[in-house]
Amino acid sequence: MNETRGTSVHGDAEARRRGTLDAAAALLDEGGYAALTIRRVAQRAGTSTGLIYQYFADKQDIFISLLDESQAASADFVAALPRGEGVAALIETVIPESARQWKRVLRMTAAWRDTTGIGERDERASVQRLRTSSERYLTELRRAIVEAADGEGRTLRQDPAMLRFVVSGLVGVSDALVNHWEEDLDATELITFAAAAIARGITAEP
């Protein structure tokens, strides 16, 4: 019998894993990557370090799992967006979601990479999953931009840097929003202006 009081063993395991990731995300928000330790995660999640090691190899594995979730969520979000309002409107809709993911975990990526020294040859399964979800996000973002441009009769610049330019713009605006760099500027105005500027940067003159 795999169920007790209506909850399956699998469900319990998933709940514990989810609780671990939520606790880790809270610690990252409070103290950055340096604050992320297995002991602190266990304390925050109300569990034991031994139980956490049943699901994650180490704190790097926890962080990678959060990144993987973030990229997967972003890919799903972009895939579901309507394309009918054009490139600028599409990007304007993407920015708040980008900022949400940036605040939750993505802003710690540079510190994580510096600390772990992760490279292209890292063969851990969790790293492979992260690469897959990251590539899917980029694929969905490119598809959405192309379809939005086609829908409004715009031509995208044929340059290998186009997508990276968009991603860099999203990161920059997200960082400004999350850290409130522009306190004298309404966030909505910044989002609208940035989306229009990014759209102009990647579309050719009519």
Rank of each mutant, 00 (worst) to 15 (best):
V78F: 07
D68P: 04
A204S: 02
G50Y: 10
D184M: 08
Y55A: 07
P160H: 04
K59Y: 06
E189H: 14
I62K: 09
G46D: 10
G86W: 12
G46F: 09
G19I: 00
A25M: 06
A35I: 12
D175H: 11
L27G: 08
T115Q: 12
Y53P: 04
I91Y: 07
A15W: 13
G32Q: 10
A34W: 06
G201H: 01
V78C: 03
R16I: 10
G31N: 05
A161R: 07
A89L: 03
G172D: 06
E189C: 07
A88K: 13
E92N: 02
W112M: 14
L190C: 03
R16A: 09
F77D: 13
L67C: 08
G172F: 08
D150H: 06
G151R: 15
T155V: 07
N2Q: 06
V94A: 09
L27N: 11
V167T: 04
G31D: 11
H180D: 15
V146Q: 04
I38G: 03
A34Q: 14
R121D: 15
L51Q: 14
S8P: 00
G50A: 11
Q128C: 03
A148G: 08
A23F: 00
A197H: 06
V87S: 10
D159F: 06
E92A: 13
A88W: 14
E3V: 10
A24N: 08
S168M: 11
